[in-house]
Write a protein that binds this DNA or RNA. Sequence first.
DNA 1: TTGTAATTACGAACGCTTTCGTATATCTTT
DNA 2: AAAGATATACGAAAGCGTTCGTAATTACAA
Lengths: 130, 130
Amino acid sequence: MSKYKKIRPTESELEILQVLWEHGPSTVRFVNDQLNEDREVGYTTTLKLMQIMAEKELANRDTSQRTHIYSPAVTEAETQHNLLTQFVDRTFKGSAMKLVMQALGNHNASEAELDEIKALIEEIETKQKK
Amino acid sequence: MSKYKKIRPTESELEILQVLWEHGPSTVRFVNDQLNEDREVGYTTTLKLMQIMAEKELANRDTSQRTHIYSPAVTEAETQHNLLTQFVDRTFKGSAMKLVMQALGNHNASEAELDEIKALIEEIETKQKK
DNA sequence: TTGTAATTACGAACGCTTTCGTATATCTTT
DNA sequence: AAAGATATACGAAAGCGTTCGTAATTACAA
């Protein structure tokens, strides 16, 4: 886990990050349009949030043009990992296994997905054998 | 899933619930003492939170004595399930599998735990076969 | 009984996130 | 060039959770 940084985007920031992760570098206008497919958000609201995200270094912005371009400054994987760790600590008192059991038990998993998990378990076991 | 209710305890409320789940019906004094083993919290702070929790019906309180007794009004399992669902929606866009993969990949799992998961997968597969 | 301790009740303040109104600048269109 | 559209900047307010001071009440002890 390369550099240490506690990435803790808020709920709104996470929504925006998800747009950036999915679509790559984007304008405020574009992000706002995406958000508005789910719920109504004012343009300046999104703008403000993205400006804050730039300050916090959750996003980078290119201000060379009049219309600024924002890109994610954190990866989806590391953010998910951080949020997950935090969530597990809080809700499951640190027991990731309890969480996995809950998740597996409560959500419908396809055969393919279960196979994926089995493969992952195999892999972990192989590593541990050494 | 018996009654529908969106259980969304805040972080502080969750801490208190965890004390109630672990120790059963408790006084504010007791809960506050427990919390103070981890971090400093004022007595009236805890009191206030627990009063709010009673209002929100996250906890029940018995006011028949001068010193009120609080008990959890929600179970640990259903609360974890709700928080997990919400978290998965937010952070993994609803893909519980992605979450499981992250959790499995990033945390050290013992052989026994992996066996447990394999057993659970077996069980799910058997059910689906039908 | 009088004072001390413990408990509940209440309200206010603080911090953080979110929302948005308004001002200003820049581009586009006519 | 003027008008309208679009962008950023800024500040303030609203909402929510958390914290705590203070008052009022009840129990206990001297």
